[in-house]
Design a protein around this nucleic acid. Structure first.
Lengths: 223, 223
DNA sequence: TTTTTTGTGATAGTATTACTATTATTTGTT
DNA sequence: AACAAATAATAGTAATACTATCACAAAAAA
C-alpha cells in the first residue's frame, strides 16, 4: 500500500552510515529489538555485539554511544511517520479529513512483521512508546538540537500545526496543540498499558484514544 | 500563605527514612540540586556523597539506588502539588474556578528560595520538568506501580478528572484529559525552553501556556 | 551504669559499563 | 604483487553501581 522508501538520516547521528552494509543494518534492526527487550537503561553495546556476533568496538565504529543510536532510531520513526502522513494526505484537500487521518496514523499500532526500509516498524512504534522522551530529556538537548537531530520531529509537528491553521486560521496555539497531539498519542498508549487509571481505557484497542484525541482537537479548533 | 507541611512518603521508596535526621535530609535536598546540575544520567551516589561529605555506602543505606531517589523526589513534588491544590480549592465550589486554579498551579514556576518541608520547591519543579517521565519509563513500571510508588500522581490525576466530571458530567474522557493536562503543563515548559519551535511561545513567562491549557480544557469539556 | 543496638565512616572489593588504543587482518587499488 | 586503507579483534582503562567487612561513637534499652 505504502511503497518501500529509504529515509535519509542526519549524518551527525552516526560515525559510519549503518545503511551502507549488512553489519550496519543489523546493528540498527537488532538494536531496536534489544532496546525493547531490555529497556534503554539496561541495553549496552556489548550485549548488542554479542547478539549480532560482532565486537563491541565494531558497534562503536557506527555509533558514538547508545544515546546516539536511540536518537537515530526514534528519529527514523518520526521521519517514517512523516512520510506516511505525506503519502496518505496526498489528494486530500479537506483539513478536517487530513487531521483525522493523522490522528489515526499516530494512535494506531502498526502491524507486526511489517518491515519498512529494513527497520521493523512495529518495534519502532514500541520503542517510541517507551523511550522517545529520553531522546531529548538530556543535558545535550541544546547541542543535539543545534545539530538538527530533532528536525524530523519538529517538521512533523510544524506540518500538523499548519493543517490546524488551515482548518481554523484564527486558532492561536497550533504549535502547542500539534506537539500535544504528537506527545499524547504515544504517552497515553503507554499509560493505557501500564498505568491504566490515568486513562479511560485499558483495552488494547485504540478506539477510545483516537476518539479522545479527535474530540479534543476538533472541539479546540472549532470555528 | 500555604502553611508548612510534612508529606508522608511511601515506605517502599527508601531503606531508611531520610526525614529522620540531618544526613537523610541532606541527601534529599542536595540530591535534587545535584541531579538538576548534572542531569539524572550523570548523577551518581558517589558524587552526591562527596558533595555532602559522606560516603557512598551511607547514601546507599538510605536509598536502594538512584532511580528510587528520583521517584522519591518526583513523588514528593506531586504530593506537595496535590496538597497545594487541596489547600487552594478549599472553599471554592465552582468547578470552572477550580480547574483554572489547578492550571495556574501546574503551569506557574514556583518562586526560588521557597523551601517547603526542607525540599526546595523550585528545584523540584525543575526536576519534574526535566526528569519526571524517567520515573515511570522503565522496565519496572508494573512492579513500581504495584508498590504504589505512583499513587500520589494517579490520585492527583483522578482528582482533576473528578472536577472535570463535576463541570460536565457528560464528558467522556476525564481521565485522558486530566493526565494530558498534568503531562503537558510540564512537558510544554520544557519545550518552550529547549525546543521552542514545538510551541507558540519562547518567552520565559507562563501566560501563553496557561492560556493554551485553559482554552484546550474548557473548549473540550464545554457543555 | 552497663550492655546492646544502631548508624556512620573507612576501606576494600566486584562485576559491569562505557569507552579507547593497539595490533592484526582483510579488502581494494595501482 | 605491492601497498595503503578500511575493518575487525584484542586488550586495556576509568568510572559506575553496587556489596561486604570492620571499627567506633552515640543513643537506647536493660
Amino acid at each position: 500500500m505504502i511503497p518501500d522508501i529509504r529515509i535519509k538520516m542526519n549524518e551527525k547521528l552516526y560515525l559510519r552510515n549503518p545503511e551502507d552494509n549488512v553489519l550496519g543494518r543489523k546493528i540498527v534492526s537488532q538494536g531496536i529489538l534489544l532496546i525493547n527487550k531490555l529497556g534503554f537503561e539496561d541495553f549496552t553495546f556489548k550485549k548488542l555485539a554479542l547478539e549480532i556476533e560482532a565486537t563491541e568496538a565494531t558497534v562503536y565504529r557506527y555509533f558514538e554511544n547508545k544515546h546516539r543510536l536511540l536518537v537515530y532510531l526514534i528519529t527514523w520513526y518520526w521521519s517514517f511517520l512523516a512520510y506516511k502522513v505525506m503519502f496518505k494526505l496526498n489528494n486530500i484537500d479537506n483539513p478536517e479529513v487530513k487531521l483525522k487521518t493523522i490522528i489515526h496514523l499516530l494512535a494506531t499500532e502498526p502491524e507486526k512483521g511489517q518491515y519498512s526500509d529494513y527497520i521493523p516498524e512495529a518495534a519502532a512504534y514500541e520503542l517510541v512508546k517507551h523511550e522517545s522522551s529520553k531522546a531529548y530529556l538530556t543535558r545535550n538537548v541544546t547541542k543535539d538540537n543545534q545539530n538538527r537531530l530533532f528536525k524530523p520531529y519538529k517538521d512533523l509537528s510544524a506540518k500538523i500545526a499548519q493543517i490546524i491553521k488551515e482548518f481554523n486560521p484564527k486558532y492561536k496555539y497550533p504549535n502547542f496543540l500539534a506537539s500535544t497531539l504528537l506527545e499524547m498519542s504515544h504517552a497515553q498508549k503507554f499509560f493505557m498499558e501500564n498505568l491504566p487509571s490515568l486513562t479511560d481505557s485499558s483495552s488494547p484497542n485504540d478506539k477510545k484514544l483516537i476518539q479522545f484525541l479527535e474530540d479534543l482537537v476538533f472541539k479546540t479548533i472549532a470555528k
